[in-house]
Design a protein around this nucleic acid. Structure first.
Lengths: 349, 349
DNA sequence: AAACATTGTGCAATCGATTGTACGCTTTTT
DNA sequence: AAAAAGCGTACAATCGATTGCACAATGTTT
């Protein structure tokens, strides 16, 4: 057994612990622990000696042990539909910036819009004893039992962008209705009247809100919207293409799309059909995906201010930590989206 | 103090532990632990009783405690320059798929190409006692001390896409030289001769390889490449624009760009200058960012097979875990990139 | 000078799960 | 029938850091 150990030790070199430091200085481990935390009852010489030895061996505290004892892991779980959506990676960036500065790290999970993945991600994060979960619910999520289990277990919960309506907790969302309203208002100002809407699934709150904004703007402009002007499609390229082709006989003047990818689909289908965008057809999207700036013509869209959203959610959490309050006392904030006007909707005279 | 506790207890409801289960069944905690792990020495009735009670209370093992005892956290750290680059999010997706199936979770850190962030990310992951670190080094990383500390502490290390050349460990990279070679070969086949290269910083390995591939293809075609044909630029839009404008008097026939964003810059500048792409100027990029398929004309580029890369790295790690070997015994795999031919480089006759 | 306050440190319990060893009981072997 | 083997469970130590309490040594008050 000893001989075997000789092979194992060099490969799994053990980390330095406070006990190693304590032994070297002939003090107790508790003194080392306190010295490293600048506890006032530790004398200046001892504190310095401890820190010197710790630095010498590049001591790294074992956060696993510390988490276990303190019941806090200094880790925050983030659950997003997918990280490669520009908006979500912006949000994560915003969170990371604030949280890293306060010594927290992020554990990021993707649901790919599947409820099953969301449930298991929450389980994972509970097991890891994260201090909080930042969640943007998946499109399949209509049952909230798994989400409710978080506050029940003392884990703070915050929603961003997509909230589960009836759970009372801190959240930051963007005013989707307003974003849609501004976008459609802009199309109206450009002279487009027969504006159709490629909507997302109505059971998804954000899409419902976008539709409401569309209807409000049209209503205020005194335009009656027949139900055929609203087409529910998956917010992907094919959705836009299919919507365009089934709308041809209505001869729409513009499209307000609930997502950038659908808008892209419309644009490509329209150009293939020989239409000039924006002259023959105005198009606006939603989300400000990076490609919207690069395509020809560039796409008017709505920015959801992901980075700010991320840092606001992180800020809420840090405030809770500081004041030792639960997340259900936090506010529900609503950010104003920003309309980015580009070429796909502006008629040059 | 007691009164205060009354307020605190309902908010921080304690998690169920094996001791709670043990008490309810009048067995010891070790029996519960073994029963849950299907240890053969636990009798069938006991095992079932334990599992029933565990399910009743929705018991979730505390992985923090388990990690501390077992010295393994079932967590893998991933360090990437930025998660919103399509390639990296694909890699992460590929890793996640395999690792989640084996019960591992991911801790994702971004360096934003800064060495300082890389150092602190590694520190974070060491503290969290991750079982392995998957690393794609930042552009600023030329000192590898912080990276070497990982295997020294018994943490497995794997590189993907960008490896630190002199560290012996498992890695999966794409053959950048070959990708560049194929891309330039394709331009040559299309009849372009005066092909310029917008290179990345030469001290970055991937960019150096891409330049080598370019030179090899040109050389084999018998074309002498004056140094003015190679322009080193940041691989962003502005880099491409600036390269284009300073190349005008050379009258290039095509550009092979080391990145998609630089290619985009070239394309936009060229069109602004009244050139037709691909007729007057062929353009190819590198990375297969999603926007490359949407722009007009669509951009020929090289796909780095991120998802496969991610799952290969994850597979290497799982194999190490299974066989209990260190990561320095693993192979250095090289993936063949795929040339995606689109409109920006194909001259229709 | 006795009583008290302050300072610096160590002891030991704790967080929750894991695991080597021991022990009592039953079954099998000789 | 005695010895050996197998089974099922409990005990206690362990992972590393934290923290309430105890206690000795020193300083301050009356």
């Amino acid at each position: 057994m000893y001989a075997f150990c000789n092979f194992v030790i060099p490969m799994r070199k053990t980390h330095i612990t406070i006990h190693d430091i304590a032994r070297e200085l002939n003090v107790s481990a508790s003194t080392v622990s306190r010295a490293l935390q600048d506890h006032p009852r530790i004398s200046e010489p001892t504190r310095e000696a401890v820190k010197r030895v710790a630095a010498k061996y590049n001591y790294q505290p074992n956060v696993v042990a510390s988490s276990l004892r303190k019941g806090s892991s200094k880790t925050v779980g983030v659950i997003v539909p997918r990280i490669n959506r520009n908006f979500f990676s912006k949000v994560i960036g915003g969170m990371e910036e604030l949280l890293a500065a306060s010594g927290y790290h992020l554990m990021i999970c993707q649901t790919h819009e599947k409820l099953g993945n969301e449930v298991s991600a929450i389980q994972t994060l509970v097991n890891a004893r994260v201090d909080a979960v930042m969640l943007s619910i998946s499109m399949e999520t209509f049952n909230y039992e798994h989400i409710r289990s978080l506050p029940e277990r003392g884990i703070r919960l915050f929603f961003f962008d997509r909230a589960a309506g009836d759970i009372q907790t801190g959240s930051v969302v963007v005013d989707d209705r307003l974003g849609a309203y501004l976008s459609v208002l802009h199309l109206l100002e450009q002279g487009y009247r027969k504006i159709m809407h490629i909507a997302g699934a109505d059971r998804i709150n954000i899409y419902k809100k976008r539709k409401q904004g569309y209807l409000q703007a049209m209503h205020e402009a005194g335009i009656e919207v027949p139900s055929s002007w609203i087409m529910e499609r998956n917010q992907v390229q094919e959705g836009g293409e299919s919507a365009f082709s089934s709308s041809i006989k209505i001869k729409p003047e513009a499209f307000f799309c609930a997502g950038d990818f659908a808008a892209l689909g419309v644009m490509q289908a329209a150009r293939k059909a020989g239409l000039n965008v924006p002259r023959d057809l105005g198009i606006t999207g939603f989300a400000n995906e990076p490609f919207t700036a690069f395509i020809e013509p560039s796409l008017t869209t709505v920015d959801q201010r992901g980075a700010e959203m991320g840092s606001m959610v992180a800020g809420m959490f840090l405030k809770c930590e500081e004041e030792d309050t639960t997340s259900d006392t936090c506010e529900q904030k609503v950010l104003e989206p920003e309309l980015i006007i580009r070429d796909s909707s502006v008629i040059h005279k």
